[in-house]
């Protein structure tokens, strides 16, 4: 690992984004548009207050997962990854570079969505703002790490985008959004217990509804952080210096 190379990589990815205005606009504005839509569809302040944190949780993960898996696949197919693997760059330099750049984008994304929700849409938070931002950021990093990992198993962009519903839907269905987790069939609850999104959603809900953050919140944060490290480690293992 080398801090100069990691930062140069993050800067390079930010430059790529800067040259692609439409992608940046989509990344930053789409979550806000969906939240505004949700507000008018719900037409009910309480229901909106329950759903908004879920969207703030899901979007950073979803967007970063997609963007990272496509970006990594492009690095593989364009030969730039091979060039980097023949250079002094370490696998973690690349992963952390992506994490930094997309983490920054996630902050922008969540920042705009929160600003609109808290002002125009009158979303009321019981506690302070930072726990929401923290969880959203962790979700973005989780999405980045898992996108990287999944892209290793995709041979084409077509396959890569199909990983999105595969990774996303089970986590949403089992994450306690539609049915509380303790009311699920035992087997499903077990599966739910090992999916990181379950903890992320719980942490987001806790952050939105309670003024005091207890041990449950920090346990959830720890589980999500651990999942990020695990996915990053596995992702690094898929970046091979030598390929067949």
């Amino acid at each position: 690992m080398n801090a100069t190379i990691t930062l140069a990589t993050a800067r390079r990815i930010m430059n790529q984004l800067r040259n692609d205005h439409r992608t940046v606009a989509l990344m930053v504005l789409v979550p806000t548009l969906v939240i505004v839509l949700l507000y008018y569809v719900m037409d009910n302040q309480r229901a909106f207050a329950a759903w908004a944190p879920v969207l703030l949780c899901v979007f950073p993960f979803l967007v970063m997962f997609l963007v990272t898996s496509i970006a990594t696949l492009r690095e593989r197919t364009s030969g730039t990854l091979e060039r980097l693997m023949a250079s002094p760059l370490g696998q973690l330099d690349l992963l952390l570079g992506y994490g930094l750049a997309f983490g920054f984008m996630a902050c922008l994304q969540v920042g705009v969505a929160l600003a609109v929700s808290l002002t125009w849409l009158d979303l009321e938070l019981a506690g302070s703002l930072w726990p929401l931002v923290l969880v959203a950021l962790l979700n973005a990093l989780l999405g980045t790490a898992m996108g990287l990992l999944c892209s290793a198993f995709a041979r084409s962009e077509f396959q890569a985008v199909q990983f999105m519903p595969l990774v996303m839907f089970p986590q949403l269905l089992l994450g306690g959004i539609l049915v509380p987790r303790d009311q699920m069939a035992t087997v499903l609850e077990w599966i739910s217990n090992v999916l990181p999104m379950s903890y992320a959603i719980e942490a987001m809900k806790l952050a939105a509804v309670s003024a005091e953050l207890g041990g449950d919140f920090w346990r959830d944060v720890a589980v999500v952080s651990g999942s990020i490290l695990l996915a990053l480690g596995l992702g690094a293992a898929t970046l091979r210096r030598r390929t067949p």
């Binding site: 790529q16 364009s78 730039t80």
Partner: peptide
């Protein structure tokens, strides 16, 4: 090392 297919980022100058 220079690969046969140009290995540079198309979305960077």
């Amino acid at each position: 090392y220079s690969t046969q297919n140009p290995a540079i980022y198309r979305d960077l100058s």
